[in-house]
Nucleic acid binder design. Structure first.
Lengths: 231, 231
DNA sequence: ATGTAATGTGTCAGAATAACACATTTAAAA
DNA sequence: TTTTAAATGTGTTATTCTGACACATTACAT
């Protein structure tokens, strides 16, 4: 039995990969060395295979780009204008991913012709990919204001000032050091490793790691990290 | 030019329609009088047409069920397990909609064999539709705790006790009358119509209407209506 | 040794919240 | 007509949370 329906359509997945280098929030973008739109910039994407679960396809696309498994990602929205892809009718499920910028496989990125681009310098992208990035940024800001997902962008061990710089770059704003520290520590999600950050030049900051068990339990809890972010 | 790719797939849309009758939160479900799974319960759904924008398809499906336009809806998640639909490989974009239960076209609902079912008595649904409802309820609870979307389930004019009953039925909890009232009024989203609810038996409550302009501006603002809802 | 920049900890006034008391309205009962 | 009871509207207060700011500590540079 089949459905009496002929509108079978290509299903694509497009991914906004966020990274943080300690100073700025960055995007992993593709300088296309293939058609269509060769030479232009786009998001990393791929097609769903007929015999492939959707979440498997998402992980495959992320793995082929970064060499990482178990990446944090979130579905954002499905884009489905009739003419969004001039080549052929294609529906695209858009999602964003957060990775530790230092942990991914740089050879794979090079093979895909992918580059880390500062959000502030982002080039024009093909199709509706600009809109996708706008939405992803909005969603990241929304989610990170309420839930402790920022850690996904940092190394295993990190300092509170590093975390603050991350938040400041996400929201393009300045925050009070002391209040931020108090709020973060009050979540009880951070464990003092006993080590200190040897890179910082003056007083070395305490290196924390995430309490992963508490993190899993609290991932949906409200924390209200960004009280100022009320738009 | 075409993509060198053969995995063209059926794309479905499945919708969780919420309604509120003044006492309980309800779902509009289909008692299937067509194949597959005839006789069983399912969500309202449909297929995306080849020449149809995705958002147009969503509105079409909602209109065919309710006779309403400009319905509030939100995309939740795309379901894409290989065997989720035993008939044929089908990807389904799942979304929820909020409607005024008294405003929809009952003849259309009857034509679709749709019935309002109390959430507490919901039957087993076909395919992965149970999972979809669980997720929709979770998302509704999440969203309504922070944003003033509850109004979408009420008539044009409503009282604060009605609104409170709605929230209590969404979260299956009791709330303090006085604190709830204060919190709602502090949003400045409600306009006193000067009228009173003639149905209530004792002291008639003030009928308010939504300040739609402020509502549109504040739809993304955080309000934190459910301080207890911290899971 | 001393200065400086970044980090860690503490303080306090004002705002927001949760718990609770009291007054008002209206229909039904006495 | 008066009384009663249930639901609604408004007010109060102790507690907690937040935002703004001061001060102490660390480690490198001079």
């Amino acid at each position: 039995m089949n459905y009496p329906h002929s509108s079978r359509i290509l299903l694509a997945l497009d991914c906004i990969v966020f990274g943080f280098d300690g100073e700025d929030l960055k995007l992993l973008l593709i300088k296309r060395n293939f058609e269509p739109e060769q030479g232009k910039w786009s998001l990393m994407g791929g097609f769903l295979e007929t015999d492939e679960d959707l979440d498997v396809a998402t992980n495959r696309i992320l793995y082929d780009l970064t060499g990482l498994k178990d990446i944090y990602f979130e579905e954002i929205k499905t884009f489905g204008k009739v003419n969004r892809d001039p080549v052929e009718r294609t529906i695209s499920i858009c999602f964003f991913a957060l990775i530790n910028i230092h942990a991914h496989d740089q050879d794979l990125a090079k093979a895909q012709n992918a580059y880390w681009i500062d959000l502030k310098n982002r080039p024009n992208l093909i199709f509706d990919h600009n809109e996708m990035v706008d939405l992803a940024l909005e969603r990241l800001r929304y989610k990170a204001a309420l839930h402790p997902i920022g850690f996904e962008l940092l190394p295993e061990k990190f300092t509170i000032p590093q975390l603050q710089k991350l938040y400041e770059s996400i929201y393009q704003t300045q925050m009070d050091r002391r209040n931020f520290s108090r709020k973060i520590l009050s979540t009880s999600l951070l464990i003092d490793t006993g080590e200190k950050d040897e890179n910082s030049s003056t007083k070395k900051a305490i290196l924390y790691r995430l309490d992963k068990e508490k993190y899993q339990n609290q991932i949906n809890a409200f924390h209200y990290f960004m009280a100022d972010f009320k738009r």
